[in-house]
Simulated assay, not measured.
Amino acid sequence: MSFIAICPLFSQKGFPNLAKLVVGGSLVISAYPAITGYKEITNMLLLGEVAIKEVLFGLAMGYLSQLVFSGVMMAGQMIDFQVGFSMAQAYDTMTDVQSAQFSKLYYWLTVSAFFLLDLQNSMIYGVVNSFKIVPLGTENMGGASIDGVVQLFEKTVEMSVSLSAPMVVAVLVIDILLGVISRSIPQINILMMSLSVKTIVGIIIFLLALSSLLSFLGNNLSEGIENMLEFIKSVR
């Protein structure tokens, strides 16, 4: 249930709470046969400690599965800022954050690629299988696991920069050219011109890179699920 509270798609505010309970309850029922070799705990203090460990373990898995989506949103925000769409941010009821056009577009493209590649089943399988790999009460968040999480966060930032770089650089070049024009011909309203020019160029670059973008997202999503599975194995 802690994994459902933070994992992609299911954790969205627009996802009905009743559906979250149904999905979480289904995972509990599906995982029950995988739980073997556990011992009964009569000490309430020890039971609370084990429960807290399980909750933290679920949150860690959810955080790792969410990293690619967070990186995509970060890339969209950098593009929106450079193109000028950040001035037209609106409240997104699905993600519960303020976002502009490219942030939403990149996010829903990532969601589409996630389902097209059937990665939701791999993610759910990893959660259920975690009870076999890491029996109840035995997980140990050691230094290697924490270092791995930090490295995955670094890779997410690198992915977001790589994703946004082509469009950001192109729009930056346009800003430089418009600055030169503004100095040469002060009578031109560069502000109004820049908004339309950068929007058109941004859309053109997005359409040209769309096929490569979907391939890039698919590779990173698959790698994100594999990283979550590797994390589960690393805490045994």
Rank of each mutant, 00 (worst) to 15 (best):
3 F>P: 05
4 I>M: 04
4 I>Y: 02
5 A>S: 14
6 I>N: 13
7 C>T: 15
8 P>K: 08
9 L>N: 08
10 F>M: 11
13 K>L: 10
13 K>A: 11
15 F>P: 01
18 L>C: 08
21 L>W: 05
27 L>V: 06
29 I>W: 07
32 Y>F: 12
32 Y>L: 15
33 P>F: 04
33 P>M: 05
35 I>D: 03
36 T>K: 14
37 G>H: 02
37 G>E: 02
41 I>Y: 03
42 T>P: 05
45 L>E: 15
46 L>R: 11
46 L>E: 15
47 L>D: 09
47 L>V: 04
49 E>Y: 06
50 V>R: 10
50 V>Y: 02
50 V>M: 08
50 V>F: 00
51 A>D: 10
54 E>L: 09
55 V>S: 07
56 L>Q: 07
57 F>M: 10
57 F>K: 10
60 A>S: 13
63 Y>I: 09
66 Q>E: 13
66 Q>M: 13
66 Q>P: 07
66 Q>F: 09
67 L>I: 12
68 V>L: 11
69 F>M: 06
71 G>Q: 05
73 M>K: 13
74 M>N: 11
75 A>F: 07
76 G>D: 06
79 I>D: 02
83 V>F: 01
87 M>I: 08
87 M>R: 11
94 M>R: 10
97 V>A: 08
103 S>Q: 14
105 L>E: 07
105 L>K: 12
106 Y>K: 08
107 Y>G: 01
108 W>A: 06
110 T>C: 15
113 A>T: 15
114 F>Y: 13
114 F>G: 04
117 L>M: 13
118 D>W: 05
118 D>H: 09
122 S>K: 13
122 S>M: 08
123 M>H: 00
124 I>N: 04
125 Y>E: 14
129 N>C: 06
129 N>T: 07
130 S>C: 02
130 S>I: 00
133 I>C: 07
133 I>Q: 10
136 L>E: 00
136 L>H: 01
138 T>Y: 07
141 M>Q: 07
142 G>D: 09
143 G>T: 14
145 S>Q: 15
146 I>Q: 09
146 I>L: 12
148 G>S: 11
151 Q>E: 13
153 F>M: 13
155 K>Q: 15
156 T>M: 15
157 V>F: 12
157 V>P: 01
159 M>W: 10
159 M>D: 13
161 V>W: 05
164 S>G: 06
165 A>R: 14
166 P>Q: 00
167 M>K: 04
172 L>K: 11
172 L>P: 01
172 L>Q: 11
172 L>W: 02
174 I>N: 00
176 I>M: 12
179 G>Q: 03
180 V>M: 11
181 I>K: 04
184 S>D: 03
184 S>Y: 06
185 I>V: 15
185 I>P: 08
187 Q>G: 12
188 I>D: 01
188 I>A: 03
189 N>I: 04
193 M>A: 13
196 S>Q: 14
198 K>C: 01
198 K>E: 00
200 I>N: 01
200 I>C: 00
201 V>F: 02
201 V>I: 12
203 I>R: 00
205 I>Q: 00
208 L>N: 03
210 L>E: 07
213 L>W: 01
214 L>R: 08
217 L>W: 04
220 N>M: 10
222 S>F: 08
222 S>G: 15
223 E>M: 14
223 E>R: 12
224 G>R: 01
225 I>Y: 02
227 N>P: 11
228 M>A: 07
235 V>K: 06
